[in-house]
Design a protein around this nucleic acid. Sequence first.
DNA 1: TATAATATAATTATATTTTAATATCAATAG
DNA 2: CTATTGATATTAAAATATAATTATATTATA
Lengths: 136, 136
Amino acid sequence: MKITRACDYTIRALVYMAQSSMGTAFMRSDIAKACNVPDSFLGKILQSLAKSDILVSERGKKGGFRLGKEPKNICMYDVIVAVDGPLNINNCLDEQVGCCYDQSCCAHKMWKDVQADLIEKLKKYSLADISEGCQQ
Amino acid sequence: MKITRACDYTIRALVYMAQSSMGTAFMRSDIAKACNVPDSFLGKILQSLAKSDILVSERGKKGGFRLGKEPKNICMYDVIVAVDGPLNINNCLDEQVGCCYDQSCCAHKMWKDVQADLIEKLKKYSLADISEGCQQ
DNA sequence: TATAATATAATTATATTTTAATATCAATAG
DNA sequence: CTATTGATATTAAAATATAATTATATTATA
């Protein structure tokens, strides 16, 4: 697992959006400026979020991004996966890679257990939780 | 946080050592061969472990590496930190870096909480737990 | 037709993994 | 006692992989 900077940027952007009333549309460039995130990089991030239905996008004039769900229904696990891809604390757990070295599989059960707890925890945190703990 | 391949190698090596009776000395090259780990890279890893008192090293003829503690007293958290350095699921938690972006600090509390759980979990797993779950 | 998202490619930066060379140390053969 | 041998210790640096950023062209819509 690696929680990347993209993920930090994402949380900034989502918290920013969550501060306005549901349905408000934001332009990428506005979010980028407000959150101090590289504009073009933010583009990628917002697209990932749109593909995961965390955001809804509209093109053209008066287009932009809106939250796709209420902040309380957007969990951190979904956000992380949308941006950073499948969460695996160890390659061993990556189904596409597989645990190719027999002996190391001793640890497989541990990684699986540890990761399950982690995911459960991340599912409990919503965007609303984070946005509310933020006074601006 | 990133759990690297070095960490996988480490677990292989430690499980291998834990299969023999306490006090047995192993040469780096033997471990490398038995565990299929690049010899020189393993050198680095074993040194990190020795610095953290997980292993004891002796130079010269008849030298080698021995476990520094009973497998049941070696926890996975200590192993990971010894090899991969301080565990931080997010830079935000790295005390040396600090949480420089105010707005993103909204998430700080969450990361801290999630990480605390993770560490607690990793402290509960011992080398003995892993080695025993391994039939060879 | 201007505007804003979408897609993709290219580039730069950083971190991980591996290899290699050299230094240090301890046992022991002579 | 000292030279040799077999082991770890230390350091540098090359190779590879991944993350972060930038740039450009495409598509949709008011």
